[in-house]
Design a protein around this nucleic acid. Structure first.
Lengths: 162, 162
DNA sequence: CGGATTTAGTTGACATTTAAATAATTCAGG
DNA sequence: CCTGAATTATTTAAATGTCAACTAAATCCG
């Protein structure tokens, strides 16, 4: 295959609105990094991106997170979290425990095996990301992060006041 | 030795965290815009983002695109394109025709109904995106697009020479 | 020519994801 | 305490997505 991939973004001509062009480029870049990360996770640890994401959330909160909290942080629907948690639980990497004071809720947290498995992956995962972003200087990354923060806040406000 | 924490390792470490932070912010922002777009497409046109994407690719090339070309441009696997094309074909929005000169290949192109359906959606879709990105100035969008272009090229080069 | 390799697309198995419906529990007012 | 509304998690169905194996066709090369 031609290494100069002809993705959607590349084809947008000058007549197109700047916003559309930027959005398509965001989509393409994200997809590229995501595909690469997914492939590396699969090759090196026989796991998947959503599983890694879920474990990454839990790793920051030893007490555990409720399903709904996980759903909100991962920005995916609840049913999705249920499915991924089911698998990780079956593999012994996370466990569901009772939330004291609310019998509807379940706390999900890493098991010992889960913590060990995650910390092995996390260090390498960080290296992959750092490597991918090495093209940009610290200043450029900060600038971009700041722009994204504003964009994100704006879109959230659009959602909020429908 | 100077004990102030500004040695090489600390600086690298800070930059590393910057990469992770930026990446997480890219993921979150993308997801936000994507979720919003998906919801609007569903509400207004009873369709989905991947279908819209596929039709958007075809709209630019009246002659049609081969399955493999669609796959590369959409940055998804071939099996996925087959599935989405099957649905759109069943709905009469696209059609598969023979590629003259290569009997392995099939050209996919919009039908008349497909063209009409797409142009109705496309105009409104562009408005949604422009609205979402209104927070940023033209200059800021250009800056960000330029940074993303470099990032994308860099990641592609990582993939190429593994 | 003729066999091996490559390329194009489909298929099947399975994981992910959303949206909608359901079940269980908590909560707020009366 | 009761009852209806809200919250929390799960289940379900359909679509999306990956990957590997497969078929068919084109190309390479001796």
């Amino acid at each position: 295959m031609d290494a100069r991939a002809t993705d959607a973004e590349t084809r947008v001509d000058r007549a197109d609105h700047g916003a559309i062009r930027l959005w398509l480029r965001m989509l393409a870049t994200n997809r590229l990094v995501e595909t690469r990360t997914r492939r590396l996770l699969q090759e090196r640890y026989a796991t998947t991106l959503p599983r890694f994401d879920l474990m990454a959330q839990l790793e920051r909160v030893p007490r555990g997170l409720k399903m709904g909290e996980l759903s909100k942080r991962m920005m995916v629907t609840g049913g999705n979290v249920t499915g991924i948690t089911d698998m990780l639980e079956k593999e012994g990497l996370v466990e569901r425990v009772a939330e004291p004071g609310d019998r509807r809720a379940r706390l999900v947290r890493l098991t010992g095996a889960g913590r060990r498995a995650f910390s092995a992956m996390a260090e390498e995962h960080e290296r992959w990301i750092v490597e991918a972003f090495k093209e940009l200087s610290g200043r450029e990354m900060s600038k971009m992060a700041a722009l994204l923060a504003r964009l994100k806040a704006h879109v959230r406000s659009l959602e909020g006041e429908a």
